[in-house]
């Protein structure tokens, strides 16, 4: 059933696949992100309670959703690597990791910035912000673990185990934090940060979500390409690629 995937265990094929997909990812990014951001920030109605500041949800919500999504993608790549012993899967995992960490940071930053007009303070131990913060720690752990190994194949396996341990924990952490939050803070705040998303707001939000997803995919793919080239520098096919690069400007 998964046979069609197997050729991409070879770095050369994975690199070619990246080249095929990348233009589509960039195209998707341009279309969805520009439409979604303009619609959301200019044309969508403002909230009756939060006025213009509600528009930050067009950045905050997609990045919060996709920070979790990127972590799951990373864990899936790690699982593939551990089960089938693929070098490219570990490379994919580590290509996604810093991108996911940055997206998590964006979610945290926009969340904090949103909190200022809403709650009058930059930071509040609200459930979503807290679990995003812990998610950022998990990302940093995976990246740091990858960094300390000299042998990057070994590093990939080790970081992969950590990513899997993390992904089992992400839902546990999320629900425990939500539960902890309601226990300590009561329900007074949680109503404010979840405005009822009406239709005119939903569509630009979904388009922004797609735009962010394409953007993350595109950046991860670029990172994967450079990871492959860096790790396989001495292989004949990379050497050939580099020598061709003088003629065509297509590569890397």
């Amino acid at each position: 059933m998964w046979k069609w995937l197997h050729p991409y265990a070879k770095t050369e094929n994975a690199y070619a696949l990246c080249n095929t997909l990348l233009p589509w990812f960039w195209a998707g990014t341009c279309v969805f992100l520009s439409v979604g951001v303009v619609w959301g920030l200019v044309f969508a109605p403002q909230d009756y309670q939060q006025f213009e500041s509600v528009r930050i949800i067009y950045i905050h919500v997609p990045s919060a959703i996709l920070s979790m999504g990127a972590y799951v993608a990373m864990a899936v790549a790690a699982l593939v690597g551990i089960v089938w012993q693929w070098r490219t899967a570990f490379m994919t995992m580590i290509a996604i990791a810093p991108v996911g960490a940055v997206v998590t940071f964006v979610a945290l930053f926009t969340g904090a910035a949103w909190g200022k007009p809403m709650w009058g303070t930059w930071w509040i131990w609200d459930a979503r912000l807290t679990s995003e913060l812990i998610l950022l720690f998990l990302y940093i752990g995976v990246i740091a673990l990858y960094g300390v190994f000299d042998d990057k194949q070994q590093a990939g396996k080790a970081a992969g185990v950590m990513a899997l341990v993390g992904v089992v924990n992400v839902p546990i952490i999320h629900y425990s934090v939500v539960w902890w939050n309601t226990l300590h803070q009561g329900a007074s705040i949680s109503k404010v940060d979840k405005p009822d998303v009406a239709d005119p707001m939903l569509w630009p939000l979904l388009i922004c979500l797609a735009g962010f997803a394409f953007f993350i995919a595109a950046v991860s793919t670029v990172r994967l390409k450079s990871e492959i080239v860096r790790r396989e520098m001495h292989r004949p096919w990379v050497q050939k690629l580099v020598s061709n690069d003088g003629v065509s400007s297509d590569a890397i």
Binding site: I134, F137, G141, V165, N169, I173, S176, V177
Partner: peptide, 9 residues
């Protein structure tokens, strides 16, 4: 660094 986030729940 690896373990503390995991122990939060």
């Amino acid at each position: 660094l690896l373990l503390i986030p995991i122990f939060i729940p």
